[in-house]
Design a protein around this nucleic acid. Sequence first.
DNA 1: ACATCAATTCGATATCTATCTATATTCGTA
DNA 2: TACGAATATAGATAGATATCGAATTGATGT
Lengths: 184, 184
Amino acid sequence: MTDEESQILLQFLKVLADESRLRILGLLTNREASVEELAAYLKLRAPTVSHHLHRLQTLQLVAMRAEGNVHFYRFQPESLYRLNRMLTPEKLSRLTDDVQGDEWERKVLRDFLSGEELKEIPASRKKRLVILKWLTDKFEADVRYPETEVNEIIGRHHPDFATLRRELIGNGLMEREHGVYWRI
Amino acid sequence: MTDEESQILLQFLKVLADESRLRILGLLTNREASVEELAAYLKLRAPTVSHHLHRLQTLQLVAMRAEGNVHFYRFQPESLYRLNRMLTPEKLSRLTDDVQGDEWERKVLRDFLSGEELKEIPASRKKRLVILKWLTDKFEADVRYPETEVNEIIGRHHPDFATLRRELIGNGLMEREHGVYWRI
DNA sequence: ACATCAATTCGATATCTATCTATATTCGTA
DNA sequence: TACGAATATAGATAGATATCGAATTGATGT
């Protein structure tokens, strides 16, 4: 969640997830209005409305036009469209997937390993595969392991050995027959 | 902001405006996952993840499939599309339409409603129409409902669902064809 | 029946923020 | 220059909620 766009999405949602601010936007879609007008309509004090407008403005959901001391605010629909574009399943999935590169695999290992300890199981299928390949190297080729030993070996690196063991099989990195495991 | 759809919009935004929940959705777009897996990846405790999943589930942003004791959650994109449809300037402007709306209609609603319960069906045609419009808002636009569900939804507000259902049709607020009902 | 493990529910706590009052700033005008 | 009016900022408070550990529920296998 260090991705910039994700943070913007989160900010958008936080700003919009407030009844007063939604109502302000609703009023401003019809016509521009001053802080005082809005306060009267919403039955809030001017500083409160000012605070909300400030937050809306940082995301360009509203814009301001000053006429003397009176500040007229208007709604800016483009920003809503921007939010809509960010609110697709595809964009959401990228929240947790990083960009790929040449050093990508090593970066994954750096990120998820602390020494020989797997800090967490990557959620993205691609990264998980990198970790699983690394884990496979902990087993000798052409050696048959009983399940207890498989658990023990995986368990040296992460407590959730059951999930990892299933993933190793599921991804074709190891095989099982009658409770005996071996590396491919 | 008494409008039902506005409240749903607000709920959507509140549920999504949280980093952990966004990350959960991001993970679930790639693959379904158990509570434990999610907790490991997010570095949160299981009860916390459970709490988030519950909130996501109330808005049908995720769905659950149980396999023994393990609960696998998956992402439901349709709900996001629903949110997108609500996040247009036109819909936002309707948030406040009823604020300046007819004082009389609100009085009728106050008089005949006790919370979400319809105390009695108004005898006057004009007042009945106000109630029926309110009742129509309990149905989603563009959704087809079987008669049993129509009865169930109306029944939440008044026992005499048969009369009210007939009135909704008679006043052109809903339509029926082959036992299937939809909102106009 | 009993033990175990995943998930949920419960109760407590700490953080966040919407809202308020009080104060400061900015601009038009007498 | 000084005053009044409209906003903005600062600081305080109250309500909401994300998170946790502990206890409970529910399913599975011995």
